[in-house]
Design a binder for these strands. Sequence first.
DNA 1: GCCGTACCGTAACGTACGGTACGGTTGTTC
DNA 2: GAACAACCGTACCGTACGTTACGGTACGGC
Lengths: 219, 219
Amino acid sequence: MSAVESGAGEWTERQRDVLDAALRLIVEGRPLTMTSLASAASCSKETIYKWFGDRAGLLTATVRHQASRVRGTPLPEGRATRDALEASLHRFAVEWLTVLGGQTSVALNRLAVAHAGTDRAADLGAIVLNNGPLAMEARLVPMLEAGRVAGILDFDAGDADTAARSFFGLVVRDVQIRLLLGDPLSLSPTEIERDAGRATRQFFTLFAAGQDRPAGGDS
Amino acid sequence: MSAVESGAGEWTERQRDVLDAALRLIVEGRPLTMTSLASAASCSKETIYKWFGDRAGLLTATVRHQASRVRGTPLPEGRATRDALEASLHRFAVEWLTVLGGQTSVALNRLAVAHAGTDRAADLGAIVLNNGPLAMEARLVPMLEAGRVAGILDFDAGDADTAARSFFGLVVRDVQIRLLLGDPLSLSPTEIERDAGRATRQFFTLFAAGQDRPAGGDS
DNA sequence: GCCGTACCGTAACGTACGGTACGGTTGTTC
DNA sequence: GAACAACCGTACCGTACGTTACGGTACGGC
């Protein structure tokens, strides 16, 4: 029952094929029923039940399977300079907007949001949450904290998460909710680049050290 | 598309009672089936079908019904001063966070997001979109534009919507997506007040006129 | 050759739910 | 008070889908 292990080696290749087929059904908007999955993956329903228990188990396995491979590019661990930090934030924003705008992200977030409303058992919402906003902020906080220690950024100690969430807001704005609601918003690489640049510049305007009135700090 | 027919007089009182019952089911997380609604609203299924056509019609009517009564408080049409604008933005942010954090908003956004993924017929997503982020930005843009004309704010002409979306990001940040994904995030009036103040201050740091390098404008 | 295991394909079962039909009750109109 | 409309409650139909069961095939071990 408990599929606690979320390691990459959790499933065999054949099983991963089935999960990929499930993902494909979700992303392409086709209904994901046990029958349709068995047909799409050329496997037996009985096998699906044997492997994943029930439908909830299949969904969590699918979401986890996808989450396990959207680890962001590792952070540069070099010295913290203003330019390096700015470049990292920019790259971060580009990466994030690219992921958010992808069909897979939209489809999985929709699935998780829908389930967060009804299902209490298989909390896909928690999985997506931990691999989405929370993961982003967890990666961001050390960067920002290093920037603060290095005297590049200015916010109160312990407020790195507040700064990270502001950066999130500047980057994402209303894009994600609009995509989730079906707005035919297109995010070309050019626009992503431009938005990431704007958000990064805005962030430094708010939090760069050595200004008169940093508005990022708490009142 | 246009929510033209969304006047309050569209439904009789009894019909509005049924729609309220539907809303209550959605908000409380109970399944909204035609049978459960008939039971909850003490009416006949046949009557529901007669009034709303089918399930899709019922859902759109329900969503529209709720949308028709979250019109924000009217904007103050007085002269544009820095303090007045700041107060308006602050009030705006408080109002928006309060709405977003409400059970009704979360439940309806979940419903609309789920339907945007599958249903193509009754696009609840478009309705929620038009009464959510787009409505907010439509109300915001004239305020910001007036501020720009009055010399209070600084962004390129025609970029009022970009500024509005940045404000949206500063206010909402990751709150909405976390709520939709089931994060037990609590938004007390105190926290809302504080977040609205922070977002407003940050917005003015980015877009107030008479600074050295306003980072809000495009590059 | 024979068994156990793993798997595929498909039939079958139970249930939930959208949608329809119909009898019974209430209120209105003439 | 008869006719009629609106509505409630409920039984009913058809279908989709989760879940289970079962027959058939391939393969490795002995």
